[in-house]
């Protein structure tokens, strides 16, 4: 069984009368890419900040690398790296000097700076100051800055926020490389489930400060699985055909639609059988529940996911 990196139990944070986090319990094991999903204000950043010790909790326990208590957590945090919201950089310093500062903060050697600059494609930035970098470059530099202390656990809050499509793809590749090449465990957040689904291995859905669902990549795929969508005015006649074909896993939606969850590769045969049985088919084809719709269904409405 893989080692538990983070075990957060019943984390609660209250601002005035508002519960920013309400008994959130999350366990992250080594090698996971844990995606925290939620609309703006759901509590993603607050949860990440509590893990990093930047804000205090009103209730709950944090266990990091098996360490608990203030001293233990302080030690454990030396194995962590973070980039929360906007990249935290010194605008007047170059990429190299930004990395030198973080190396000094972590008590690390400066030997790896060149490698990290190359890894993040920043080796040619020279004397250019961080304030003159594009957002993508700043995001990459922020991640390079977190890597200088050889973290085993990386926390990235909305790392693709504000990036253009190519920047998003590039960031995804970087995170993949960090996990596969360096064996880093990652906790990252986004308000876009679709985007996270391309990278995360596990998901936690936060809504109004509560963790409303946790699921693995496989479970997500299953819950948003592909199906044959059949639209016909003659639902009863269609069901008879499905029964004759031995299809059992289906559901009738709105009296005119049938979602069929098996024999997905055999749409042509199904269509032919329906036509031969004189069933008027308005539409037939495979489809998949949109992740956004799935998220909205879970959170019950108005979200940007």
């Amino acid at each position: 069984m893989s080692e538990t990196i983070l075990k957060a139990t019943n984390i609660t944070k209250i601002y005035g009368k508002h519960k920013a986090l309400d008994k959130v319990t999350i366990e992250i094991k080594r090698g996971m890419i844990y995606g925290l999903i939620g609309e703006n204000g759901a509590g993603k950043s607050t949860f990440m900040r509590t893990i990093m010790g930047l804000i205090t909790t009103d209730e709950g326990n944090i266990e990091l690398f098996g360490e608990i208590g203030a001293k233990g957590l302080q030690q454990a945090r030396r194995k962590m790296g973070q980039s929360i919201e906007t990249p935290a950089l010194y605008p007047e310093l170059t990429a190299r000097d930004n990395l030198r500062v973080q190396a000094a903060n972590g008590g690390m050697s400066e030997r790896e700076i060149d490698d990290l600059l190359r890894l993040m494609s920043l080796e040619h930035t020279g004397k250019k100051k961080a304030k003159n970098f594009s957002l993508g470059m700043r995001q990459r530099l922020a991640i390079a800055s977190t890597l200088i202390s050889h973290p085993e656990f990386l926390i990235l809050d909305e790392p693709t926020n504000g990036l253009d499509p190519s920047g998003i793809v590039e960031m995804r590749e970087i995170i993949h490389r960090l996990v596969t090449e360096r064996g880093i465990t990652v906790l990252l957040s986004s308000h876009l489930l679709d985007e996270l689904s391309q990278i995360a291995t596990h998901y936690g859905i936060l809504h109004d400060g509560k963790l409303i669902k946790e699921l693995s990549k496989e479970q997500l795929a299953n819950e948003t699985r592909q199906y044959i969508e059949l639209e016909t005015a003659e639902v009863q006649k269609a069901i008879v055909v499905l029964d004759e074909l031995g299809i059992r896993d289906y559901e009738v939606i709105n009296g005119t639609n049938i979602n069929i969850y098996e024999r997905l590769d055999d749409v042509a045969t199904l269509n032919r059988s329906l036509v031969l049985a004189d069933v008027n088919v308005s539409r037939i084809g495979t489809t998949r529940q949109k992740l956004e719709d799935y998220f909205l269904q879970l959170t019950g409405g108005n979200s940007h996911a």
């Binding site: 930047l54 973070q82 903060n105 800055s145 926390i155």
Partner: peptide, 8 residues
């Protein structure tokens, strides 16, 4: 945050 999240 850079320094503090490193356990400083």
């Amino acid at each position: 945050r850079n320094a503090l999240s490193l356990g400083r």
